[in-house]
């Protein structure tokens, strides 16, 4: 059905796989398909939970900068109006955050790299499970930007202003152990077991799900 996203259901668990290996970057096709999936598909399915994961060794390296900057530069050239471009791009943030409006738990299952927009997507999930060797981070400020897909809003609400400031301004990557200590992620498992353990978590959560889990 999709090019960059795979969506299938098994045993009432919905699996959304980012399928653009090896690093599963989020290009414009990803954002279009994700929007379509969220607005037209997911709520019509008979499922109790959702697992978001990446194909192969990595979750995702985040947004494709050239794609994104290209869109912004072209529309800025055409309209000269930052507000308009911003309105258009803001759809991506709103749609990421709208995972919080679903009535079922969303689990991000992370192996390998999960950077920038990819971590922002994971932060909009309700539970993050990480492989031991995962690499997390919001590196945007190291290339002249800031996180633009919910990160500056969600991260401070999860870890507090102090730590969020440090993570965002330093742009440094961090390990699952650090992320666990900071309560950004909820579980660390051996890399090969990430998806299996995510299924266990998904089933447990959907059985005892409380909407309060969605509040950040």
């Amino acid at each position: 059905m999709f090019k960059v996203l795979n969506w299938h259901i098994e045993d009432k668990v919905g699996y959304l796989e980012i399928n653009n290996p090896p690093s599963n970057p989020m290009d414009s096709a990803f954002f279009e398909e994700f929007y379509w999936w969220r607005t037209e598909i997911v709520e019509k399915e008979d499922i109790g939970s959702i697992i978001i994961h990446g194909k192969g060794r990595h979750f995702s390296s985040g947004a494709v900068l050239d794609d994104l900057l290209g869109i912004i530069a072209r529309s800025y050239h055409d309209t000269n109006d930052i507000k308009k471009i911003s309105e258009f791009l803001n759809k991506n943030s709103q749609i990421f955050f709208s995972l919080k409006d679903l009535k079922i738990p969303v689990i991000a299952a992370i192996r390998g790299v999960c950077l920038g927009s990819a971590l922002e997507l994971a932060l909009c999930a309700d539970y993050i499970i990480c492989g031991e060797k995962a690499v997390l981070g919001l590196p945007e400020t190291t290339f002249g930007l800031i996180p633009g897909c919910t990160g500056t809003y969600v991260l401070p609400r999860v870890v507090g202003k102090a730590l969020a400031t440090e993570i965002i301004l330093s742009g440094k990557t961090f390990s699952p152990i650090e992320a666990f200590e900071w309560e950004i992620i909820q579980k660390i498992v051996p890399s090969k077991q990430v998806l299996n353990k995510a299924v266990e978590v998904a089933k447990k959560l959907s059985a005892n799900f409380s909407p309060e889990l969605k509040i950040i």
Binding site: I72, A73, S86, F97, V154
Partner: peptide, 25 residues
Amino acid sequence: SNNSNREEALKLETELFCNLAVNVK
């Protein structure tokens, strides 16, 4: 980020992002 109106907060983030992005490009 302590703004309880999430739509507004996310709008501000995107605007700030776009302002920087134009310069980067």
